[in-house]
Design a protein around this nucleic acid. Structure first.
Lengths: 149, 149
DNA sequence: GTTGAAAAAATATTGAG
DNA sequence: CTCAATATTTTTTCAAC
């Protein structure tokens, strides 16, 4: 889909605050809210906007620790192995990558103990993983949901 | 902040679709919309809900490639180095980690060429980084914005 | 592709149990 | 904390340019 400057402005506003009323978006970009509505609909249908999500603070809901995990997957069974990994609660992202690891995953757990259990008793024991490395996140210096559109 | 089951249900709904009208949230959890409104306000004020963001497909806005980057930071100048890294366009996340790398970052770029430029001509040249490794994301197997609350 | 206006729906607010 | 009623805003639709 081709996006013009108006579309990009709308995206910027909704990335920053997805609950901004269309009427206010319209005010800010100096157009009618019907136009905003129409453009947002088209961007949703085209898959440019994939959804709207409330960002919840992990700590406030009991996830006191997270880690970035590198994994080596045994050849020939990637699909099945990753499907099982996806289903593990606390596993938020799984990316196939070049370089040192086949897979990089982001996992959340309640505390260090739960993370140990998750990694060493659940993930590392799963068939299909040859090796893993857990990098515990000590802190997040910078994090944005907003792409520079 | 203490969250009860009702709060958690509201969080689940808003994590899945942040634009769900409060009246519909209320219907689904069988409460009045005033209650939902009140609870959402309290969760916002307490920082449980950090915001609402439209999820935009990176490819649709010109980011055809992304990478997970490991970095070693020279001791004694972490703060300044990471501040400068945060300001680089396309750098979405920066986490301090244990293990092989001091810092893990997620970066987005237009294409392989732009990623090379970003990494080797911008980041790797920055004072303060001793070493880096770029793991190009070949695909994303699983990704959710929703924490299992 | 955009607009303005009207109808439908949702949200904010208030007072009370 | 929750509800119900009301006042205010917003969303949605649609004829018209």
């Amino acid at each position: 889909m081709d996006l013009d400057d108006t579309d990009r402005e709308i995206l910027r506003i909704l990335q920053e605050d997805a609950r901004t009323p269309f009427s206010e978006v319209a005010r800010r970009i100096d157009m009618s809210s019907a136009t905003v509505h129409d453009r947002v609909n088209r961007m949703q249908e085209a898959g440019v906007i994939e959804g709207y999500h409330a960002k919840v603070d992990p700590r406030e809901v009991g996830f006191g620790i997270s880690a970035i995990v590198g994994l080596r997957v045994e050849q020939g069974r990637e699909k099945d192995t990753l499907d099982r990994l996806s289903a593990v609660e606390g596993v938020q992202e799984i990316h196939l990558t070049t370089g040192e690891w086949d897979v990089m995953a982001r996992v959340y757990a309640e505390d260090a103990d739960a993370l140990r259990e998750l990694m060493f008793e659940e993930v590392a024991q799963m068939d299909g993983f040859a090796r893993s490395q857990t990098m515990v996140v000590l802190g997040t210096e910078h994090e944005t949901e907003e792409l520079p559109v």
